[in-house]
């Protein structure tokens, strides 16, 4: 009789332990999309304290065991690992789950530089970071399209797949000068930047020289770069005159595409012209007026 009672007590204890263990269980979903409400089923009876600790949200509340715990969308807006803890008189249970980013909703677009000479190979750097509407980086690969558009110039476009939420590329600047619209887009989300493409170094820098009663008058042809873009006004052109008395230089800014200067030199003189690193033609004048 005693043996039987002992066995019954043991079995009852095991049942109670199993029940208690079941009461302390908590099983959140393995993965949750950011900003999506969901429920966590619980077992057992009585009240318990539910803790939710995430990368941003942390909170606790009383819950009724046996009923599903509702987790609001606002509580799981940030991507990352979350810990849930359920504490009741029966014990403690905990579990972890991950919240992953929602659909792409924003694009952080870095374009460098903001001003570049035309026809620079790989001169433009573009980096795009893809975020969801809760500012979580979207790790799911996305195709980002980079477009460099300029009026009356061929569109330059490139598609790059993100890795860890980042897409980047290098692009050539256009052959034409002007303000280029540089866009990065993923789906219907688009970000715009303006890249000012300016004429490159002068090409075929040539000048005309004429003696006059005061000295020597020099004037360049209209100055353009190698792709035909007019070099901007204000670009400095240097004229150098060298004769038996020594060397003298005059810096003249471009006005309406042309640089002009008066050189005070007499006798046989050699005149050269340069702008930046580009040398132009050289003219030798005899001593006679």
């Amino acid at each position: 009789m005693f043996k039987l009672l002992s066995w019954a007590l043991l079995i009852a204890t095991c049942f109670f332990a199993a029940y208690a263990a079941r009461a302390a269980e908590i099983h959140p979903p393995a993965g949750v999309i950011a900003g999506t409400a969901f429920t966590i089923p619980t077992a057992g009876a009585g009240k318990a304290t539910f803790y939710l600790v995430g990368p941003t949200y942390t909170g606790k509340r009383e819950v009724q065991l046996g009923q599903a715990i509702e987790v609001n969308a606002e509580e799981v807006r940030s991507a990352g690992q979350y810990t849930v803890v359920l504490r009741s008189s029966d014990g403690e249970a905990s579990a972890n789950f991950y919240v992953t980013a929602n659909q792409p909703a924003a694009l952080s677009f870095l374009a460098h530089p903001s001003r570049i000479p035309v026809s620079q190979p790989n001169g433009i750097i573009a980096v795009a970071f893809i975020f969801d509407k809760f500012h979580n980086l979207v790790f799911q690969p996305q195709d980002v399209t980079f477009r460099l558009a300029l009026q009356n110039a061929a569109l330059i476009s490139r598609s790059v797949r993100t890795r860890d939420g980042i897409a980047w590329t290098r692009m050539d600047s256009s052959r034409k000068a002007g303000n280029a619209q540089f866009t990065a887009s993923v789906g219907s989300i688009e970000e715009k930047r303006v890249i000012q493409q300016v004429a490159s170094d002068p090409c075929n820098l040539r000048m005309r020289v004429q003696r006059n009663p005061k000295g020597i008058s020099v004037e360049t042809d209209p100055i353009r770069d190698c792709t035909g873009n007019p070099v901007p006004d204000g670009t400095v052109v240097t004229f150098t005159a060298q004769n038996a008395n020594g060397k003298s230089t005059v810096d003249a800014p471009l006005k309406k595409g042309v640089a002009r200067a008066e050189l005070n030199a007499s006798g046989p003189t050699t005149i050269s012209v340069a702008s930046g690193v580009v040398m132009g033609n050289e003219v030798r004048l005899a001593g006679a007026k």
């Binding site: 870095l110 460098h112 980096v127």
Partner: peptide, 12 residues
Amino acid sequence: AGFYSPDGGALE
């Protein structure tokens, strides 16, 4: 260290 942007503005 992974992605280091060409302009040196971000390091992942």
